[in-house]
Write a protein that binds this DNA or RNA. Structure first.
Ligand code: MN
Ligand code: MN
Ligand code: MN
Ligand code: MN
Lengths: 218, 218
DNA sequence: AAATAAATTTAGACAAGACTAAAAATATTG
DNA sequence: CAATATTTTTAGTCTTGTCTAAATTTATTT
């Protein structure tokens, strides 16, 4: 089917399209892929040749229907494997991303379907991100950033924006995990820091933290 | 660590060394890898450079200690994943090899260890082959080929030599599976075919079959 | 022990995917 | 709007792993 590299580009474009609806720029893609702009141009041409993306020179790139479908299948596999690692193999949520980056490229529709079934058709991965079903459908939750809450408002923690080990371990250390309720006690206008309460404990967090935690309000 | 291709060559050499103790020839390796002899020579040089094999021009190749250790880890992963697919995801034993060929290259020691634990440290894969433990140790069972049995002798089916889908489906169709007892009722000297009895049913099998079924005698 | 056959290696080429440096196109600014 | 800055593309190179064709070495026959 498609190479690992092609799949990784498609996935990156898929994620960046949320932010750049008008088309994903070569530089944005180069940064996401941790490669050089010239390499991106080369690959975009190949993807365009294969009708996985729509590309006009200097105008950025968009996924075609086929490209989008392919990207979603890769994301589906990534998130199913992350769920598997956490729920079945006792991995912590900060340890699974790199392994899922490898597993997401395993080619077998039956494997993906059977894994999904084995896991009980989970709807969200360990970081709160939606897992597309076999048809590629998934629901985008109406979540918001904790930073958007005002004093005395509260919400349930439902996901992370940054899913780096560093951030996830910080959350672990402070006993913040998905499903818990967070209430804003104070909000400092000057630096955006907050005093929150989570499970009866008070905690002061910087804006960098509240900007990377998704919550859902009732 | 090592590339997929390098790992595949090491695994192929590992398997061929059983048959060619004096050194695996370039042609034998080319056939096993389904590639050309010149490509094999190229790769052998690279592996030799990395001290994974011992190579003298025109003299065939052998695994170094490091090469052997690496090959065994790949085999361990291959067989653990095959076991996982059959035992947890309800795959049939004839469907797992190609997927395991992909999964065996996933790089994460922790994943392999945790998978092993999750599976209950299985000793044999679905085809009866031994699964090396984390240290690379595994027991070679004292099995023999069904073809070696004489009239009126019996044994327990413990493995397959050929693990192609075609052969495995043939066994399924004839209700032959690992763990079952087979008794030889007749043995035809002319063509090596046998009349066997397995679970009260009589069955005539060609020598090609009996030459690819491992059994253990009491 | 030549002569021939078979196995193996070398030489040169190619595709994928990356890189650097330079050129070209687009955006921004005075 | 011309000058400058930024972005993007092109040109040329490199590495990995493969291939074909030719050369070389080893094995087998007469
Ligand atoms: Mn991830
Ligand atoms: Mn995730
Ligand atoms: Mn197998
Ligand atoms: Mn097997």
């Amino acid at each position: 089917m498609f190479s690992f590299s092609e799949e990784n580009y498609l996935k990156a474009i898929f994620h960046l399209e949320k932010k750049y609806q008008a088309g994903v720029s070569t530089n944005a893609l180069a940064e996401e892929m941790e490669t050089k702009a010239s390499s991106v141009t080369d690959m975009i041409k190949k993807l365009s040749e294969k009708e996985l993306v729509v590309y006009k020179k200097y105008q950025g790139v968009k996924l075609s229907e086929l490209g989008k479908k392919t990207a979603i299948q890769v994301v589906r596999k990534h998130r199913l494997w992350e769920y598997f690692l956490v729920e079945k193999l006792d991995f912590n949520w900060d340890e699974v991303h790199d392994i899922a980056e490898q597993l997401e490229h395993i080619k077998s529709e039956k494997l993906t379907r059977e894994l999904d079934k084995f896991l009980g058709f989970p709807k969200r991965d360990p970081h709160g991100d939606p897992i597309p079903d076999a048809e590629g459908n998934f629901s985008v939750a109406n979540k918001m950033l904790l930073a958007e809450l005002d004093k005395d408002e509260k919400g349930i923690c439902v996901g992370v924006k940054d899913s780096s080990s560093e951030f996830l371990r910080f959350l672990d250390k402070n006993n913040i995990s998905l499903g818990k309720e967070i209430k804003v006690l104070e909000k400092e206008a000057f630096d955006g820091s907050m005093l929150i309460v989570i499970e009866e404990r008070e905690l002061r967090i910087s804006q960098l933290i509240s900007n990377n935690l998704y919550i859902k309000t009732q």
